[in-house]
Design a protein around this nucleic acid. Sequence first.
DNA 1: CCTTGACACTCTCCACGGCCGATTGCTAGC
DNA 2: GCTAGCAATCGGCCGTGGAGAGTGTCAAGG
Lengths: 360, 360
Amino acid sequence: MANDPTSELPSERARQILRMLVEHYIREGQPVGSRTLSRSAGLDLSPATIRNVMADLEDLGFIIAPHTSAGRIPTAKGYRFFVDTLVRLQPMAEPDVVRLQHQLEDRFLGDAKAIAAAASSALSSLTSLAGVVTIPRQPHSTLRHIEFLPLSGRRVLAILVVNDSEVQNRILDMERDYTDDELRRAANFLNEQFTGLDLGEVRSRLLVNLDGTREFMNRLMLDSISIAGPAQKSGADSSGYVLSGETKLMNFQELSDVEKIKQLFEAFGQQREILTLLDRSVAAQGVQIFIGEESGYRILDECTIVAAPYTVDDQIVGVLGVIGPTRMAYERVIPIVDVTARLVGSALNSSLNTNLNSGS
Amino acid sequence: MANDPTSELPSERARQILRMLVEHYIREGQPVGSRTLSRSAGLDLSPATIRNVMADLEDLGFIIAPHTSAGRIPTAKGYRFFVDTLVRLQPMAEPDVVRLQHQLEDRFLGDAKAIAAAASSALSSLTSLAGVVTIPRQPHSTLRHIEFLPLSGRRVLAILVVNDSEVQNRILDMERDYTDDELRRAANFLNEQFTGLDLGEVRSRLLVNLDGTREFMNRLMLDSISIAGPAQKSGADSSGYVLSGETKLMNFQELSDVEKIKQLFEAFGQQREILTLLDRSVAAQGVQIFIGEESGYRILDECTIVAAPYTVDDQIVGVLGVIGPTRMAYERVIPIVDVTARLVGSALNSSLNTNLNSGS
DNA sequence: CCTTGACACTCTCCACGGCCGATTGCTAGC
DNA sequence: GCTAGCAATCGGCCGTGGAGAGTGTCAAGG
């Protein structure tokens, strides 16, 4: 990622100028010229001097001039340097944090998807950008109750209650017919033996007992337990993430071209690209930023994604963040995403615990 | 709706000219002038004559000239007259019908939402407009199985299986504690007495027995049966309709203004306006059309909605249609919406019957 | 009475050109 | 090493003017 290391490091003064330039451009949205920067507080330098420095910065690839007489704007590389080493983060206002926390926890219990939706919409309204939150994976699902119902044609409806109040169900296609009695016995067996255990645990115990007595219905049991595994396919819709405030993106002139907006929205609809991009930030802890062309997707050339994974019990269960133009208020957005990730984690946690505290 | 009835009826020739004008405008998207119409096949009239007729049509409010030298375009009233009495509907191609039918029935069984989503996306791709399908109401829900599980703090998780493979669940806030045994007995009672009955029927029988023996848990039973009533609120997401291909709307120059697109998309997000509009077409059978300002919503001033209710067992369970610019290919779109409504109805029906054919 | 050709008029669209302002790179001087 | 000054460059703005398209009207003809 970092090549040409010799000329990579601008002088202290150059860095200050770069910071002021980026900050000014983010605020005003116009290319900023040497005169503006010279007047701008802080450094006492003539426009000519600043011009020299800016020429250097342009050589290094941090800024670029849209045309001869129009000042400079940051490149993706410039933004990268800015967020990595120059930005002065501006912590969220305390009242905002409290309000956000309430929004995330006042929700009706147990519904992870509702929390994700609330977080997405909160992110959007706090930043005036598009908010995005992946539906949380269930970190551990403890079996609460299971039930089988016969359908037509060797199909069986399995209903699982996990984590004490979450219902999942799926239709299983079986190889042979099962009698009502068999199904009842299978359910009883599972309920008696495995209630309160993690589904993964249940699964492995079932595998161990495979050649035991009830092998004739092992297939049924295994399948039913496995349905809660990778993704909670409760409907055809829990496809990935919750997006909010996309329309806010139309307010930015850098995206006001209809064709660009269209492609962007189509990408939102596909979900694929966005999801793989978000997945990348699962690797590292903390806030990840993908600026413009860095993402590798043409459609996002003029967009930045600020994302952070969120955790339950120190396990990463999802990613959230915002999507906006490269020219966004990083110093405000980054803390917002950071805090939201933490709060979503704890909201999920407490909603889980509320239901776990008692039980049968 | 129809005022000034004396001058309402243009002559046969005027109607022909109006039809050609509308058809031409729909095809080309440009204001159409007298010369163009004169050259256009059919009538053998000089441009001057046509100009006279067009002046009449303009007086009647069917067409309007954007400016002095730009030909005429249809008004909403003009479109209305066109679709009501002039349009020559062009039936769907048979292969398209078959393909559509397959798309709607090849789906995995029982999931009404998936059928709606498929229909929405099919509508969009057939018409190159935005497709919209409301989530079907359940016309009749027969009770298959019910189960209660205790949660913390006097809350009870109720799980219902209706129509043989559809699972619904909700958390009930109760007034007092229930023991495990009580819950089991309540479930057994309901399962033994009411399996196979319509939920409404179950409800009324419960009400009759209100002062009978088990009145102490009637509240529980009633609440649990009622959850399946008005809307299947299985998640926080089944909020109304499935929209597809919104981005296709950005292709039309009449909507290519960013501000308009933005408001339109925000309206899609709100859902409220669109839903009340769709609800209006539940009144009448068959295809309903709302042209531009007729809708009464400013945001839809330049849009037309073509909608039709769809039925299961002769009961209207939802509405589907397309949203596009007023300038759309009505002669193709209307039959498509019509056929899709029928096919969705029968797809829902057959998916229902597949599961009902057997059972325990 | 309806139709038609002719004519003057209106209006949009677009290309051209000139001017203004902003900004730069360069060079000479401090 | 910084700064002031200078010429050069380029986008944005505005008024002009011509081309093109279409209209309304009017008088002549069937």
